[in-house]
Write a protein that binds this DNA or RNA. Structure first.
Lengths: 172, 172
DNA sequence: TATTGTTATACTCTATAACTATA
DNA sequence: TATAGTTATAGAGTATAACAATA
């Protein structure tokens, strides 16, 4: 799969007129970011932290972290799967998934049921409350979070960004 | 600052011909990602993990983590700054920066010197070995890491991606 | 013998309070 | 009194080994 083509328009403004003396490495206030400003990994990390921070804030009314939201979403879209399958899909290690599920289940958002086919595995399902909470969360994410991102970048750019990130995760 | 305009070209391929029966939620192998596939935060996190993983691998010859690399870069571009300034610029909390510097200094990559102006603060500088190591690391990053990212996305897209990520970190 | 869920554990990151030495 | 560096500490997130129940 290819990524939407991008037409650069806004080149970095040519060196602002040097006022008086050639200025040294920095203005004693701002530090020089140097090559860091071109490092994709650095920009990626910074953006990710900011986006998660905003997500948390937007979804605060239903008290869900990004990770918890992703679990509920996956349970809703894949009812009847077991812990290993859900965890693996999200890149969560099975041992670490136990406490996560404990938290969600103790809040009455999802339910573990022993499978009758394979009595080793736990079938996972959202409860009604879990479904309702997820719906509320989805609306909050769409209207408060993603909408503002789309506004910031422009919808076409948001889609292109998503495509590039997915491509990196998949093919890099 | 605005972001380079993007012209989408590759829309998601229209629903592949449904072969026989309408297929259920999943094929019992692949899970349905559902709305997760559209969540920018999720894509951001996944891409960031992959990029850091690759960074680590590419820079393995000089044994630097992304965070350590960013510190050395900043020291090189801003000699004579103190711990508070460097840490704050990178979003590292001062208490957590102490152990990081201990590690770099014990490897002979940088040096703390008490400032003669303000004897509370430590002036930070790269050692010759630190500078040499940074140069090696920069070459590894450029030729092994960033070059492959540029190859994957296309250079124009890579630049557009960087601009959007920076914009999110700055303005979102 | 292999797999599912689990426990225990450890290591990294991140976050806060409080200490010391300077200012 | 405020600030720089530091210590201690606690909490997430992530990683591995090993166990009981089941296949």
């Amino acid at each position: 799969m290819t990524v939407p083509k991008v037409t650069p328009i806004a080149k970095p403004p040519r060196a602002a007129r040097k006022e008086t003396l050639a200025e040294p490495a920095s203005v004693a206030g701002e530090l020089m970011m140097g090559e860091l400003a071109q490092l994709l990994g650095y920009a990626l990390k910074r953006a990710q932290l900011r986006v998660f921070e905003d997500f948390l804030q937007c979804v605060a009314p239903v008290q869900l972290t990004p990770a918890q939201f992703s679990v509920l979403l996956l349970l809703d879209n894949n009812p009847g799967r077991n812990q290993t399958e859900i965890a693996a899909t999200l890149g969560i290690l099975r041992p670490n998934f136990v406490a996560m599920l404990d938290a969600l289940e103790s809040r009455g958002l999802c339910q573990r049921t022993r499978s009758s086919n394979d009595r080793r595995s736990h079938i996972l399902m959202l409860t009604d409350h879990g479904r309702a909470t997820l719906m509320r969360a989805k609306k909050l994410v769409a209207t408060r979070h993603e909408a503002r991102l789309s506004e910031l970048l422009g919808e076409d750019n948001r889609v292109a960004l998503l495509a590039m990130l997915a491509k990196i995760a998949r093919e890099f």
